[in-house]
Design a protein around this nucleic acid. Structure first.
Lengths: 180, 180
DNA sequence: GCTTCCATGTAATAGGTTACATGATTTG
DNA sequence: CAAATCATGTAACCTATTACATGGAAGC
């Protein structure tokens, strides 16, 4: 699922500007599964407009660029529904944090501690974000994502707290050999 | 952390061919935080060799391309250690699955069910992979990643099983309004 | 007075994937 | 007998990021 499709999906929930779409990907529910910068969102919206999948209503503004409110068209709705029928591509996950864990024996212990502390704080921020998003009514998808996000972040915080000594003490774990 | 750096990190654990590095990113511990295709790995190794961060020993093979075994140099070791000192970039996560959840009200119910079933199977496969990787001795980093992977995947399986009815019944969740 | 928010967009660049090219050996 | 495994590499392509360009209004 590329920027194009996610923009279309967000617009299927209601009209928005490019700026608002980016905000949704950064601080809204979509931030839990996607992110993109202006440099990809604006061209995507321009292309979707060319193809007739969205329309654009311009509102003249003073002192800043005209506000362009994009709305999905019936063709856009159909295109989006069809894109959901295509097989899902595998999740793409890339984590400097987990890489750092894997290579943590090449790391100064003080830095390892800092990275772990930082990480806990990041998970706490995300829990707070989810709390803020959770105010008001929710679609089933939002309710599911909310609890999902809570559980995952809680688990991560708890897990780091409970298991950081394995990394910090640098003990090599040996497999119990019951077979001998 | 780009392909270049992860290749270097993997080579810091022992010599390997490009093929083996790709396998590690696909089926080894590194698969938990990184993935890359040959098209990026081979050029990265060539460049690292040019820069003197790795060396390459060629073993003549019959019926297939020469096997090129890469080994990290002292300069490479140092370069890798230093790259771990640079601030970690935020995790990058992109999930068609969670996007599908978010937009699940635009989805035929039968397809939603299939996606959820498939997802549970994927998490089970990953648990199995982790079990296979867990045989033998482990570094602290590996032990941490092992348990991390187990817990996350177990949580996901359990969570989907427990909460899928929220999506499948399509009930709109309303916030309890205690303040009124 | 500084920072953040609003608001759009482009150009250069980075970083990667996909498909292609080749082909023997082992496993089911 | 087909498929997977081993094994390397390139070229075309795609997608997205980063940095730049612009600037007023509102909040702290």
């Amino acid at each position: 699922m590329d920027v194009r499709t996610v923009c279309l999906g967000i617009l299927s929930r209601g009209s928005a500007t490019g700026y608002e779409i980016q905000k949704a990907m950064k601080e809204g529910w979509p931030s839990l599964f996607f992110e993109a910068s202006y440099g990809s969102i604006y061209p995507a919206l321009a292309k979707l407009t060319d193809e007739g999948l969205v329309t654009c209503r311009e509102e003249t503004e003073v002192g800043r660029p005209d506000r362009k409110v994009y709305s999905i068209t019936p063709e856009g709705d159909q295109a989006f529904s069809q894109s959901l029928l295509k097989p899902l591509t595998p999740d793409r996950y890339r984590s400097d944090f987990l890489a750092m864990i894997y290579f943590s024996d090449s790391l100064p212990p003080a830095l390892l501690q800092k990275y772990l502390d930082d990480r806990i704080r990041e998970h706490q921020s995300e829990l707070q974000l989810i709390d803020e998003l959770s105010e008001g009514d929710q679609t089933p998808g939002e309710a599911f994502l909310m609890e999902w996000g809570r559980r995952i972040n809680q688990l991560c915080i708890e897990f780091i707290a409970d298991n950081r000594d394995v990394l910090e003490d640098g003990v090599v774990v040996q497999q119990a050999e019951a077979a001998e």
